[in-house]
Every structure is written in C-alpha cells, then in structure tokens.
Simulated assay, not measured.
Amino acid sequence: MKRILLLALPIALMTACSNPPASTKSETTAAPSTSTAAPAANIDAAQLGANHWLLDNAVDAAGKRIDGLFVNTDKPLTLDFKDGRMSVSNACNNMGGAYTVEGNALTIGSMMSTNKACQGPIMALDGLVSERLQGKLTVQSLDASAMRLVAANGDVLSFRAEPTAETRYGGAGETVFMEVDAQAKPCPHPLMKDATCLQVREVKYNEQGLEQGKRGAYENFYGNIEGYTHEPGVRNVLRLKRYQIKNPPADAPSQAYVLDMVVMSETVK
C-alpha cells in the first residue's frame, strides 16, 4: 500500500505568486547604524555565484538582533546567485527575484515565491525576508568567506560563505534523476562489515517532464548523496546533479551526487 506525498513534475521549481514586502517596522526614528565599515568598492559577481550565503547575524539600525530571521534554527536562511537571479531557501517558501550589480550596489527586483502555508513563527519569515532583500542594498563587504549587506532601512545582514558544488568540483554538473527504494539492503563492501546500501535505479524524463522508457532493476548505491537523508519506508524520486571527481583516491567514487530536488515521495508499507 502506498500513498503519494508530493509530485513536482514537470521540472519547474516554483509556482510563482507575488510576495509583496511585509511592513513590520514601527514609525519611530531609528538610531544610526553602529556599523563603521566602508562599503565594498565593487561587487565581484563571480564571488557571489561561487558560494551559498548562509545568514550568520542580522541587526537593525540600532544594533538589535532581528530574532525573527532565525526561527528556523537548524537551517539558516541561505542566498544563492545564479544566472541573474537570487534565490532564498530555508524560509517558509522558496523565494527569488532577478538581481543586478553596479559598483557596491546590489539591486533585487520583486520577489516571487511558492505558495505553501507554514505553521508557527516560520510563517512570518517570508515577509521579513522580502522586506529586507527587495530593492537596493549596499554590499559593505564581500570576500571568499563572508558577505555583509545593508538594507535600505539600515538593517545589516551578515552571511558566511559555503562553496557551491560547482565550485568544489570545478564545473557544472549533469542533471540526472534517480529513484531510491524504500529500504536499504545488505551489500558487499571491501572495507565495511555488514554494510547496507541504498537501492537505486535511474529514471529518464524528456524536456516536457514525461517519463521515457522503463525503469530497470534496483542496484546497490555505494556512494553518498549530498543533502539527502533517507527515511526507511519512503521511496523517493530525486533530481540530482552528478559531478566528475578529478583524481579520486584509490577505491573512492569517481562521481559525486548532490541533491537538487525531491521530485516524488511515496510511503511503502
């Protein structure tokens, strides 16, 4: 017996809907910003795209921490910059908008988002993000390890850099789809006694998102899928990025797999 939990084909990631900025600040006059660092002379667009940017700290113009941006404690808000678009993950919804750079100014257009309802404090997170990340921001500092943005209202957002898979593996990955069966099974392993392996098989889709051909038999998967945690009893179809590993160690995989999206899930009893 199985139950479909999620279906996200064709390949489009988001059902767009307007997400206007929320207005949560009071009309009292804010104290001057306590930050004294000079703005960056110019934004390095390549540096923006080479990393995921994880929110480390956020304070208002008076230096008070903006606690509402940190309600998702296990998954910090993360910005990604690619192909002229900035995307936000780990809010209630996936969000994004076009961006441009000029000098030390980063301008983000109207943001679009998926349309998912969330429970608890995280429900307000999208509005807090939109309020601060739309419009013209000043890049106060930017290097390979950190970035600091100043919003139009004076809020200061500090991010730490985490290299993207493209940066780590030295090139763009190949998009592949893989079905992971509900249960892992024992598998032979030269270095591990009583090893278990995920059971996987490739799934092929055309450009319209329609499955092509028949799925083959499940095979042992000896590697690791970055970003994916398997839940026993749940069968998933995953969209992955596959990268070639240059000069891998002996007996190590020559390919790396990074989770891009869970396309479909079903519970198997």
Rank of each mutant, 00 (worst) to 15 (best):
S141Q: 12
A41W: 01
V156H: 08
L191K: 15
D60P: 09
D80H: 06
E27K: 14
P76L: 15
V237A: 06
K269W: 12
G97F: 08
M123W: 03
N220H: 12
T107L: 13
E226L: 10
L106A: 07
N72I: 00
G170Y: 09
D126T: 09
E219K: 05
T34L: 14
R65K: 13
P186T: 06
H189D: 09
N42F: 09
I4A: 08
K64I: 07
L79P: 03
S35W: 12
C92A: 08
K214E: 01
V200P: 05
L106E: 06
R239V: 03
C118P: 01
W53N: 05
D155W: 14
A45F: 08
Y228W: 08
L125K: 08
L128W: 00
M264P: 04
S23P: 06
A105L: 14
K25C: 01
T196L: 00
N224R: 05
E162Q: 07
N42C: 15
F221N: 04
M14A: 09
D155R: 05
K25R: 12
M178F: 06
E174N: 04
Y205G: 06
G103E: 02
T28L: 02
I66P: 13
Y205C: 04
P188W: 07
L55H: 14
S141T: 14
V139D: 01
E231T: 15
C92L: 10
F221V: 06
K204I: 03
K214Y: 00
A61C: 04
A22S: 13
A256N: 05
E102D: 15
G49V: 08
R3G: 02
T24I: 11
D80R: 14
V262I: 10
S158F: 00
G96C: 07
C92K: 07
N93Q: 02
W53Q: 10
E266P: 00
A252K: 09
D56L: 15
P186A: 01
N224P: 09
L77K: 09
R85V: 15
G223I: 02
D74L: 10
A91G: 10
N220C: 07
S141G: 13
K82S: 13
R235W: 09
G173D: 06
Y169W: 13
A61G: 12
V139F: 11
L142C: 03
E226A: 06
P121M: 08
R160Q: 04
E219A: 09
Q208A: 11
G96S: 10
A144C: 03
L210C: 00
A58D: 11
L128Q: 14
E131P: 00
V262Q: 02
K116P: 02
M261K: 15
K2I: 07
P163N: 10
T196Q: 12
